[in-house]
C-alpha cells in the first residue's frame, strides 16, 4: 500500500470528508424527523454544517482557568482523529482496489471506545464538578453496554465459526445468509442496536450529557473550535457505528440498510425518556446480558 493512497483514503474518500458529509446529512435527517414528530418545522438541510462553520469561524474558544491546557486541547483532537481512523478501517473493506488497510472486529470495538474515553478525559480535565459527574456517568455507561456488546459480538464469532476480520465475516454472509436471519443472530442484532444507541449517547442513554441536570456534562467547559471537534466526531460516529453493525449483521452496507438503522435510532430516541445511570446499568447487566447468554447457548447449539 502506498502512503499517498493511504493519506487520500484517510482524508478524502472514504475518510474524513466523506464521512463528515454523510454524518452531517444523517444528523440533519435526525433533527428534521425529530422536529416533525414534535410538530415543529425543523432545520434547513445544511444546518449541521452551518453549526460547524459557526463553531470554527465565528465563536471564540474559552479555556477555564487552571486546567492543563495542552491536554485540554489535545483531547477533542484525538477523539476526532481516532473516529476518522475507525471509519476508514470499516469502509475500506468496500473499496475493491484497496484491501490492505483494514482491521478485525475486536480492534474496531476497541477503537470505538477511544472517542468515549476522550469525552471522559475532557470532563476530567475541565475542573468542573458537573463535568466530572458527567465523566463518571459516561464511564459507567461504557461498563454497562460493553458487556452486552461483547456478548452480542461473540454470537457473531460463534456463528461464523471463529472468523473475526470484517472481510471474512462479510464473505461468510455472502455465501450463506446474513447473520440476522437466525434466532441467535436476531437476538444479537437487537442487543447491538440498543448498544449502538448507548454508544452514540442518544436518548434514553444521554445520561452523561443530561442537559437538564448536568448542562451537557463533560462538554460544559468546551466552546468554539474545540467543541466543534467533538461535534465532528459525533457526526462521524453517526455514520460509522451503524455501518459497523450493518456489516456484521445485515451482510453489507448500502443506503437502505443504513437508513433502516438510522430510522431505528431516531424513533428509539423520540419515544423514550432518559434513564438514570443505575437503571441503565441494571437494564444492561440484569436484563440484556441474560438475553445474550440465551443467544450464546442458541448459537452454540447451531440455531
Amino acid at each position: 500500500m502506498s502512503i499517498g493512497k493511504l493519506i487520500f483514503n484517510f482524508l478524502i474518500y472514504p475518510g474524513f470528508i466523506f464521512v463528515l458529509l454523510v454524518g452531517g446529512i444523517a444528523s440533519f435527517l435526525e433533527r428534521k424527523i425529530t422536529a416533525r414528530i414534535q410538530w415543529r418545522v425543523g432545520p434547513p438541510f445544511l444546518q449541521p454544517f452551518y453549526d460547524l462553520l459557526k463553531l470554527f469561524f465565528v465563536k471564540e474558544t474559552v479555556i477555564p482557568e487552571g486546567v492543563n491546557i495542552p491536554f485540554f486541547i489535545l483531547v477533542p483532537v484525538i477523539a476526532f482523529s481516532s473516529a476518522v481512523l475507525t471509519s476508514v478501517l470499516i469502509t475500506n473493506i468496500f473499496i475493491k482496489s484497496f484491501q490492505g488497510f483494514t482491521a478485525d472486529l475486536i480492534v474496531i470495538v476497541y477503537l470505538f471506545t477511544i472517542p468515549s474515553l476522550c469525552v471522559i478525559f475532557a470532563g476530567a480535565v475541565s475542573k468542573n464538578p458537573l463535568s466530572s459527574l458527567g465523566s463518571s456517568r459516561e464511564m459507567k455507561l461504557i461498563l454497562s453496554y460493553e458487556l452486552v456488546f461483547w456478548t452480542s459480538l461473540s454470537i457473531v464469532i460463534i456463528k461464523t465459526g471463529g472468523k473475526i476480520t470484517l472481510r471474512d465475516i462479510l464473505t461468510f454472509q455472502e455465501n450463506s445468509k446474513p447473520i440476522v436471519f437466525s434466532l441467535s443472530g436476531f437476538i444479537a442484532f437487537i442487543l447491538s442496536l440498543i448498544v449502538m444507541q448507548a454508544k452514540l449517547g442518544k436518548v434514553p442513554f444521554d445520561i452523561s450529557e443530561a442537559e437538564q441536570e448536568l448542562i451537557a456534562g463533560p462538554y460544559i467547559e468546551y466552546s468554539g473550535a474545540l467543541l466543534g471537534f467533538f461535534k465532528v466526531t459525533h457526526y462521524i460516529l453517526l455514520f460509522s457505528l451503524p455501518a459497523f453493525i450493518s456489516v456484521l449483521f445485515l451482510g453489507g452496507l448500502n443506503i437502505f440498510k443504513y437508513l433502516l438503522l438510522l430510522i431505528f435510532i431516531i424513533v428509539f430516541e423520540n419515544t423514550n425518556p432518559r434513564l438514570k445511570i443505575t437503571q441503565a446499568i441494571r437494564f444492561f447487566w440484569f436484563y440484556l446480558f441474560p438475553l445474550g447468554i440465551i443467544g450464546i447457548i442458541l448459537a452454540v447449539k447451531g440455531l
Partner: peptide
C-alpha cells in the same frame, strides 16, 4: 496525521483563545 490536521484547523480558525474562570 489526524492530530496534525486538527492542529492545522485550530491554527487557521480557532487560534484566539481566552481563559476565564468557570
Amino acid at each position: 496525521l489526524g492530530i496534525i490536521l486538527g492542529g492545522v484547523i485550530l491554527l487557521i480558525f480557532g487560534i484566539n483563545f481566552r481563559t476565564s474562570s468557570s
